[in-house]
Simulated scan of single mutants.
Amino acid sequence: MKFENVVLGVLATRPFHGYDLMKWFDLEGQFIRSNTHHSQIYRELARMVKNGLVEFEIDPREGKPDAKVYRITEMGKQVLLAWVRSPYVPTSRFQDADFNTRFSFTVALDLEAALTVVETELSYRRAQVATTRVRKRGVVGVQPIEGFDTSRYQRYGEQMHYFGADSVDRWMDWLESIRTAIVAELATLDATTDTDSEERTA
């Protein structure tokens, strides 16, 4: 997941002062990118301004240094839309930041693309569960180093497995519910579009 796409997605919500954008990454953004440093944000903004994806205007501050207000450009919007509509490739770990970031911006910009993201994720998790849930687990045929407690490793490993299996099942249930909600919303939008078309031709 490119940092550029995340910044574009955030700027699609509203213009940001550089400082406010830093605060966003410190709070909401921590669930998308771990330990995003402020210098990374400003370097990325400078690069995106240079490439025409973002622009800024100066916000004069009396008695303080002037601030820059960054906003997405039309070119930036097209790059963002190209990303949300591009093929989504699930990662091996469920509930990874790749899905969460992609879905949160896509559902706000293109509902049909968001449905594809959800269905792709759901299909991948179902296949993953089908192939890994029944795998042999444990420590068979190993030669551990001195001090490595294989019994404890196996006991707690099983607890992690059960927790993970339950979490994946709940994740797939959530994806199913989101898929149902999006399908219903798309049907409503289609019905509204059909009604508007009929009224214009009447």
Rank of each mutant, 00 (worst) to 15 (best):
D169L: 08
T180M: 09
L115H: 08
E198Q: 11
L80V: 03
S177F: 06
V49H: 01
A202I: 08
M22A: 15
T116C: 08
V89K: 10
Y88L: 02
Y162V: 10
L53I: 02
S151I: 13
D194A: 13
T132M: 09
T201P: 00
Y162F: 10
I41E: 01
N100H: 09
A127I: 07
I58F: 01
T73R: 00
L21W: 03
D196P: 05
S104C: 04
E62K: 10
S167D: 15
I32K: 01
T131R: 13
K68P: 00
R179D: 06
F16M: 07
A12R: 02
L11Q: 00
P144D: 14
G157Q: 08
I32F: 07
F16A: 00
Y124R: 01
F3Y: 09
R135N: 11
W24A: 08
S34R: 14
F31V: 09
I72R: 00
K64Y: 14
A191W: 06
I145Q: 15
A82I: 04
G147M: 15
E198S: 11
T101R: 03
D20Q: 14
P65H: 11
E57K: 08
V118A: 03
E55C: 02
F105K: 00
E74C: 04
F99M: 03
M22F: 07
T188P: 00
I182P: 06
H161Y: 15
D169R: 07
T150F: 05
T180C: 10
S197L: 10
L11A: 03
R152C: 13
S104A: 09
N51M: 07
L186G: 03
W174H: 14
Q78P: 01
K2F: 02
G141K: 03
A127N: 12
S92C: 05
R93G: 12
S177T: 12
D169T: 13
R179P: 04
E4D: 13
V84M: 01
L21R: 05
M172L: 06
E57N: 11
P90A: 02
L53G: 01
R137A: 06
G138C: 05
L53N: 03
Q78H: 09
N100G: 13
T193R: 13
G141P: 04
D66V: 09
R133S: 14
L21A: 07
G141Q: 04
S177Y: 07
Q78A: 08
L80G: 00
F163P: 05
V140G: 05
G63D: 10
R155S: 10
A46N: 15
R71P: 01
P90S: 02
A184T: 11
S197G: 03
E119R: 07
A165H: 12
V107N: 04
L27T: 14
V7P: 02
S167V: 07
P87V: 02
A187C: 05
D190H: 08
I145G: 15
T91N: 09
R71K: 09
S197P: 01
R93T: 14
S167K: 14
V54R: 01
E199T: 11
T201I: 08
V142K: 12
G138T: 05
T101D: 04
D173W: 03
F56D: 04
R126Q: 12
K2T: 10
I32Y: 02
R152E: 15
G164W: 08
L186Y: 04
A187I: 06
D96H: 08
Q154N: 11
G52H: 10
G141T: 08
T36Q: 07
A108N: 07
F31S: 15
H38C: 07
R47Y: 06
R47S: 12
